[in-house]
Amino acid sequence: MYGWIWRHLPGNAWVRGVISLVLVLAVVYALFQYVFPWAEPLLPFGDVTVDGESAGGAGADQ
């Protein structure tokens, strides 16, 4: 998988290295910005109210 990506990147080793780094950063950014905020309410650590609802539920009277 990673070998396949590496082989299909253009340029010499240095250019490929830079492009790889940019790709990795883009993936991390997408994860932190979109994927993790979506996944996080599925875990129970955010339940701090006594309204009896589960994670993702709204507060006392929304």
Binding site: P41, G46, V48, T49, D51, A55, G56, G57, A58, G59, A60, D61, Q62
Partner: peptide, 18 residues
């Protein structure tokens, strides 16, 4: 004001009915 999930990400939340 309120205890929605998004609100509690920014600080403490006041139970609106109280």
């Amino acid at each position: 004001e309120n205890t929605a999930v998004g609100t509690l990400k920014k600080g403490l939340g006041h139970y609106s009915a109280t």
